[in-house]
Design a protein around this nucleic acid. Structure first.
Length: 271
DNA sequence: GAAGACCTGCTA
DNA sequence: TAGCAGGTCTTC
């Protein structure tokens, strides 16, 4: 579920709620696989008494820099979220100083917390974050041209560019009028430039609207206060198969590309 | 590439 | 009740 805009929204809202600077008083783990390979006792003793100095984001990872020098890295995977109020499916509960409590909610239990000495052990496997200056058009173009794969799975590959998931990948391809099955080395310079621009554009719009929520269920993305994200109305392709393309009025189609559901416009996204 | 694994819950 | 879901990892 959460892609770059959703993770960014949650991270910034935790900062706004004053989580930075708070001390971790206690940790309750209700689903131990979340913190593997640590045991609950090991994890608890490593973080209790430390202060959360800074909260940041790289790709889809959230980073909590602790005063111990270690970094707690959280990946929300399909259904993870954070809240400051108790709810259902709270897998980890972190009591903080000043009466704050952090609830890590994760219906599907796919999310993972990694406690590391050096974030680079994880981040070095990622390509540049899509919204940083490290992600340049020159880098992107070369990465696409030197491979011979379908474009959609390539832009979903976090080792090439970090942050896109299934929603924003479909949106970026729709926006740049590129068919998801196009081979990466068949794209013209103009198409690569359009796609590069669209990737940044759809992610920024997602952040501006505080993320994309698709439905009302327990597996759906929620902001820290429990509200849905506001980006649903901006979605042009993802989840809209059978509906008319807002650009050309032809009916959007759904196919499977690299095992992922993929919605696109057969008329204006050219092969 | 593809398929299965990890999980629960919503939608058709 | 079956199929599918915003993600990633492992094993062919």
């Amino acid at each position: 579920m959460p892609e770059l805009p959703e993770v960014e929204t949650i991270a910034s809202q935790l900062r706004e709620r004053g989580v930075e600077g708070k001390e971790i008083l206690s940790v309750k783990v209700n689903w131990a696989p979340t913190i593997e390979p640590y045991t609950v006792a090991q994890f608890s003793s490593a973080v209790t008494g430390t202060t959360i100095d800074q909260i940041s984001r790289v790709g889809k990872w959230m980073l909590f820099a602790l005063s111990s020098g270690q970094t707690l890295m959280v990946h929300l995977r399909m259904a993870g979220s954070f809240a400051m109020e108790q709810g259902s499916h709270d897998r980890i509960i972190v009591k903080l100083s000043d009466g704050l409590t952090l609830y890590y909610r994760d219906t599907r239990k796919f999310g993972r917390w990694k406690l590391v000495d050096d974030p680079q052990t994880i981040l070095s496997k990622l390509g540049p974050d899509a919204l940083t200056r490290r992600f340049t058009l020159a880098y992107f173009s070369e990465a696409m041209k030197k491979r011979h794969r379908m474009i959609k799975p390539l832009i979903l590959d976090q080792g090439i560019v970090a942050g896109l998931g299934n929603i924003y990948a479909d949106e970026a391809l729709w926006e740049s009028k590129i068919h998801p099955e196009r081979l990466s080395d068949s794209l013209s310079d103009a198409e690569l430039a359009a796609l590069y621009k669209a990737i940044k554009q759809v992610l920024k719009l997602g952040i501006k609207n505080r993320g994309t929520s698709l439905g009302g269920g327990k597996t759906n993305y929620r902001q820290v206060d429990g509200d849905s994200g506001g980006n649903r109305g901006e979605v042009k392709a993802y989840g809209k198969s059978g509906k008319p393309c807002v650009r050309c009025k032809k009916t959007l189609e759904k196919i499977v590309v690299a095992q992922r559901g993929t919605t696109f416009c057969p008329a204006c996204q050219v092969t």
